[in-house]
Amino acid sequence: DLSGKLIIKAQLGEDIRRIPIHNEDITYDELVLMMQRVFRGKLLSNDEVTIKYKDEDGDLITIFDSSDLSFAIQCSRILKLTLFVNG
């Protein structure tokens, strides 16, 4: 049953990962930690990372904090994230 699940599709460069999320109350910090685990070796804990999501118009919107993240989650059951490393 995928109805209650949130799917995160995260892209870093050419690498795209699909991550099912069971807890929608994820904070921004938890998201960043999850991305560091998912992209281990490509995304380091001291990297400056910018996370953006695609909205319904196809625009890339920056996620700065947990309220941005929860808004993005409300918009779509499949959250398409693009990561930019400013390392």
Rank of each mutant, 00 (worst) to 15 (best):
L2A: 02
L2E: 03
L2W: 05
S3L: 04
S3V: 07
S3W: 03
S3E: 12
G4E: 13
G4T: 13
G4C: 13
L6A: 07
L6H: 12
L6E: 02
I7N: 06
I7K: 04
I8A: 03
I8V: 11
I8P: 00
I8K: 02
K9H: 15
A10Y: 02
Q11C: 05
Q11E: 14
Q11D: 01
G13V: 01
E14C: 12
E14M: 08
E14S: 09
D15W: 11
D15V: 14
I16G: 02
I16K: 13
I16N: 07
I16S: 13
I16E: 15
I16D: 03
I16W: 05
R17Q: 14
R17F: 08
R17L: 06
R18D: 15
I19H: 01
I21C: 06
I21E: 01
I21P: 02
H22Y: 10
H22F: 11
N23H: 10
N23F: 03
E24Q: 08
E24P: 08
D25E: 07
D25N: 12
D25K: 12
I26P: 04
I26M: 06
I26F: 07
I26Y: 02
T27S: 09
Y28S: 00
Y28I: 03
D29F: 05
D29I: 04
E30L: 04
L31C: 03
L33W: 06
L33E: 14
L33Y: 08
M34D: 03
M34A: 14
M35P: 00
Q36V: 10
Q36A: 09
Q36E: 08
R37F: 05
V38H: 11
F39Q: 01
F39A: 00
F39D: 03
F39V: 02
F39C: 01
R40V: 09
G41E: 12
G41M: 09
K42P: 04
K42N: 09
K42D: 05
K42T: 09
L43A: 02
L44E: 12
L44R: 09
L44M: 07
L44Y: 08
S45A: 11
S45E: 12
N46M: 10
N46H: 09
V49A: 04
T50Q: 09
T50S: 13
I51W: 00
I51S: 00
I51L: 06
K52G: 04
K52C: 13
Y53L: 04
Y53K: 05
K54F: 09
K54V: 10
K54T: 14
E56W: 05
E56Y: 12
E56H: 11
D57K: 15
G58L: 02
G58T: 02
D59C: 13
L60A: 05
L60Q: 09
L60M: 12
L60S: 09
L60D: 10
L60V: 12
L60H: 07
I61T: 11
T62P: 14
T62R: 14
T62G: 13
T62S: 10
I63V: 05
F64I: 06
F64H: 14
F64K: 15
F64M: 14
D65W: 00
D65E: 03
S66W: 01
S66M: 03
S66G: 06
S67G: 09
S67Y: 09
S67T: 12
S67P: 05
D68H: 06
D68E: 09
D68K: 04
D68A: 06
L69K: 00
L69T: 01
S70I: 07
S70H: 14
S70N: 11
S70C: 06
S70R: 10
F71Y: 09
F71K: 15
F71S: 14
F71G: 14
F71W: 06
A72V: 07
A72W: 11
A72H: 04
I73A: 04
I73M: 12
I73P: 00
I73Q: 03
I73N: 01
C75T: 13
C75G: 09
C75E: 12
C75R: 15
C75K: 15
S76H: 08
S76M: 05
S76A: 08
R77N: 09
R77V: 06
I78V: 07
I78L: 10
L79F: 04
L79R: 10
K80H: 13
K80I: 13
L81F: 07
L81N: 03
T82R: 13
T82Q: 15
L83K: 00
L83E: 00
L83D: 00
F84T: 13
V85Y: 03
V85N: 10
N86H: 10
N86A: 12
N86W: 01
G87E: 11
G87L: 13
G87C: 03
